[in-house]
Amino acid sequence: MVLPFIWMLLSSVKTDMEILQIPPSIWPKSFTLDNFITLFTQMDFLVYLKNTIIIVLFSFVGMFLNAIAGYGFAKYRFKGKNSLFYLVLATMMIPGQVTMIPVYLLLNMAHLTNTLLGIALPGMVGAFGIFLFRQFMSTISDEIIEAARLDGCSEFYIFWKIILPISRPVLAVQGILTFIAGWNSFIWPLIIANDQKYYTLSVGLALLKGQHASNYALQMAGSAFMVIPIVIVFLALQKYILQGFNVSGMK
């Protein structure tokens, strides 16, 4: 299971020459960071990295919208609440390939193709996120909210200062998943960005695979650069990720 990861790391520090040797060497003869340097000097990985970080930031705005919508569904009674919530859940059934083409046409009409906003918008909110926030926030007691209302707090102030701090466990899970999804985002950048200026890391890596098909050392360095941050985040916060499956109601 870990073999592909280990092979990726070992190969990313080998030289071009060594990687094309037959038979392949298992342990690198000489460690070199040249491949990583090439990614940033001769290729546009710095630009891809910047775009990816911007997409991740947009995703966090999306997470906030999910949270506030989840709160709306959890703690208010209003007309059409149930039917609207079922509508939200129904969107989970829609396969990405069905929305791919019309969303492209819509963004094209709005002149948002080839912009980072256009890349980020389609994936910003998600039914699953709204659902998880709603599930968690329904467990918060009504008395706290009522007490705050009697003290004259505005509704948004209640959400910001009371609900969000209580929701820290679900925020942690969602935050990690949002980061991973944003960092890995591939389909929308692939479709919406025609200009390399707007490529994210994963699209840039796919391009690298096409352009430098036989330079496996460079490809492995690019992959390692994408995978290592996620593995670090995962190892540091694994407790929350694995707990997340219990929060999500799979028990």
């Binding site: 592909p4 990861f5 960092w183 593995v231």
Partner: peptide, 26 residues
Amino acid sequence: LIFYAPSITNVVAVAVVWNYLYNPQF
């Protein structure tokens, strides 16, 4: 952890690595 790790890694990175593993020559 080991079995869970592949599912959070980037699909392109993973495909690039496996493409290399699958290379008939190298």
